[in-house]
Amino acid sequence: MSTCTALIIPADLKEPARVETIDAGLETLQTLVAGNIEAVSGDDWHFYLNEEGKILNLPPNRRTAMLVLEKTGMLADVYCGNVVFLGETHDGDEGNVPEHLIDLAQQLFGLEREAA
């Protein structure tokens, strides 16, 4: 198991997006997205969401859509439910979410950071 800094974006707009240190193991990720996980990859980042989010009629995650569109210039899907962004290590393991994603999320919708 690896401990990583993650960007967590709840689908509920009343809940703040946040940066926190998590155990990036399967059980933690499944708890955060409330179900089995599906991965979506970017350049030096990826995110996890509930693989049955649409089937379960989870709310669309508008902040994730905004972040992905701003970062990639395109939106290939509707992302439903809570989302957890992480980065990758050089050998492909889970790693800290890249600072450029945190900075962009802060600019777009603000973030809460855990106490140091």
Results as ranks from 00 to 15, higher is better:
45 W>H: 09
114 E>G: 07
112 E>I: 12
16 P>T: 10
109 F>A: 02
40 V>K: 01
68 V>N: 00
42 G>M: 07
96 N>Q: 10
61 N>T: 14
109 F>C: 02
27 E>F: 12
68 V>S: 01
4 C>F: 00
23 D>S: 14
16 P>I: 08
110 G>K: 11
96 N>C: 08
38 E>N: 04
116 A>P: 06
65 A>E: 11
112 E>K: 15
10 P>Y: 09
75 L>H: 13
44 D>M: 04
9 I>S: 01
70 E>G: 00
25 G>D: 15
67 L>I: 10
64 T>K: 00
97 V>E: 07
92 G>Q: 09
16 P>R: 11
101 L>H: 06
40 V>S: 04
28 T>R: 07
57 N>L: 05
86 L>G: 00
103 D>Q: 13
93 D>G: 14
89 T>S: 11
79 Y>S: 05
1 M>K: 07
84 V>W: 00
55 I>M: 07
70 E>P: 01
97 V>Q: 03
104 L>R: 05
116 A>S: 13
112 E>F: 06
85 F>C: 05
70 E>I: 02
43 D>R: 13
19 V>E: 04
87 G>T: 08
25 G>E: 11
72 T>N: 09
20 E>G: 02
106 Q>I: 05
94 E>G: 09
45 W>N: 04
104 L>S: 07
63 R>A: 02
98 P>W: 12
62 R>I: 06
35 G>K: 03
77 D>M: 10
4 C>P: 01
107 Q>I: 12
6 A>R: 09
62 R>Q: 14
31 T>S: 11
57 N>V: 01
93 D>E: 10
8 I>P: 00
41 S>R: 09
29 L>W: 01
74 M>L: 12
29 L>F: 03
85 F>M: 10
89 T>R: 15
57 N>H: 10
47 F>K: 00
107 Q>M: 14
30 Q>D: 09
53 G>Y: 01
68 V>E: 05
36 N>S: 09
14 K>A: 14
58 L>N: 03
62 R>W: 05
56 L>I: 03
24 A>C: 12
3 T>C: 04
12 D>E: 11
49 L>N: 08
74 M>C: 10
71 K>Y: 05
61 N>S: 11
82 N>C: 01
81 G>V: 09
16 P>K: 15
64 T>A: 06
20 E>F: 02
62 R>L: 11
34 A>R: 12
54 K>W: 03
66 M>G: 00
77 D>K: 08
10 P>G: 13
87 G>F: 04
51 E>Q: 14
82 N>W: 01
59 P>S: 15
61 N>M: 15
43 D>F: 07
58 L>M: 14
24 A>W: 01
90 H>P: 06
68 V>L: 15
37 I>Y: 00
38 E>Y: 03
8 I>S: 02
2 S>G: 03
16 P>A: 14
54 K>T: 10
80 C>S: 10
77 D>N: 14
95 G>N: 08
40 V>M: 03
4 C>M: 06
6 A>S: 15
96 N>S: 11
